[in-house]
Design a protein around this nucleic acid. Sequence first.
DNA 1: TTGACTAATGCACTTCCATTGCATTCGTTT
DNA 2: AAACGAATGCAATGGAAGTGCATTAGTCAA
Lengths: 160, 160
Amino acid sequence: MFKLLLPYLCFLHAYGFNCYVLMNDIEKFLTSKKVRPTAMRILVFRLLAQRQTAITLTNIENRFEKSDRTTLYRTVKTFEENGLVHRINDGSGVPKYALCEEGCECDIHNDLHLHFHCNRCDETSCLTEHKIPQINIPKGYLAEDINLVVNGLCDRCNVD
Amino acid sequence: MFKLLLPYLCFLHAYGFNCYVLMNDIEKFLTSKKVRPTAMRILVFRLLAQRQTAITLTNIENRFEKSDRTTLYRTVKTFEENGLVHRINDGSGVPKYALCEEGCECDIHNDLHLHFHCNRCDETSCLTEHKIPQINIPKGYLAEDINLVVNGLCDRCNVD
DNA sequence: TTGACTAATGCACTTCCATTGCATTCGTTT
DNA sequence: AAACGAATGCAATGGAAGTGCATTAGTCAA
């Protein structure tokens, strides 16, 4: 499969990573999650892993010279379905994606972390150490999932 | 202005309301909120007031035979800007709108209520009595607004 | 009451993004 | 090496947000 990666190597080198070693790790990880480790998937995973904040599909698209939006769309979707990535709706209109932490159980609402969306720089980050507090809901309702987004200014934008 | 309302009367009558009386109330209310009480605005407000749950722009559009999406879009926007309506992002992708309760202070994050989005019937309702608990955010971050959506089954869908 | 000014509306677009169908290519398995 | 299923790329569709502009309505003042 490495022959396929050659067109992308320049991209990775630009980021200064020794891709061969990490590729291998990612490849193993994807396989362990029952996701076939194709070239694109490894690269997209790589990109997500580098990021501190969540990114949109368009973001991802712009990071790759040669890429088809559909493929990226389906790649991310596959990741999401297999629990590698969670989708964040921060109110900006377009969904963003971030890698799940190890042991992240995005489905179980007790384990959910909250997200912070900066109104100035538009960055959305997962505050993984900050869990969502206990929520009371009315009788008869069944909670399956909780989404909590705090909007405001992030630490970098809140300097002045 | 009532001559303008004539085309819409059939619509209102279909709902069995004595619109003349309520029109008047709505008219006064809009004026008190510094929103010019035009025909369309009164009708849109009327529609929102009838609803128990939040609705999308497309929802509103479909309720009116004769309507232009742009006008509805701007009407709702005006309502939002003047604190008559708040926008809810329930994760379904399209924003929904609901009338603010009397004294609702959507801007002040301490006063925010939470929203419930039903995964089955796709209805989104404001749980106005259920306030958002205290949230801790990291040092350096400034919270301006909090959006909390619980997904699951509403009381009507959670029967079996 | 009329004229003038501002706000609201309707129409025609544009733009953005999600999503799908289908043909092709890749990779794995036998 | 053949065959099969999965992944990809291209083209196209569709839904909704948002904008520009001309027209119309409503208000205010003379």
